[in-house]
Amino acid sequence: MSGVLDILGGLLMVGGAAFLALGGLGLWRMPDTYTRIQAGTKATTLGTLLTLAGIGMIEPGWALKLALIVLFLMFTNPLSSQVMARAAHRAGVPLTPQSRGDALADDEGRAAE
């Protein structure tokens, strides 16, 4: 029927899935917990956004609910990554030795326990 939308949606969907795969790769390759949060849980946000946008083009009737899922993820994602990073820091998970500095530990005036 609407061939153009189907193809555009398909392309968006595959592009989004590619970002998801890259997020997975980042989750696997990154050297410490903090960089894994960065690569894994956030690079996937755009991936999900594009994938769901693509699905919305193929099935226009689903667009509203897909938009709601995207909105929900965009609100919860920064929260959960921040909570995880803060938990890691409070639990004393060290940054990778490649790191250039830790202003938070300096400010708290303590070495990581």
Partner: peptide, 12 residues
């Protein structure tokens, strides 16, 4: 949140 959602930077 805007800083956190942008990959590469994360508010701790």
């Amino acid at each position: 949140n805007a800083i956190s959602l942008t990959p590469g930077t994360l508010t701790v």
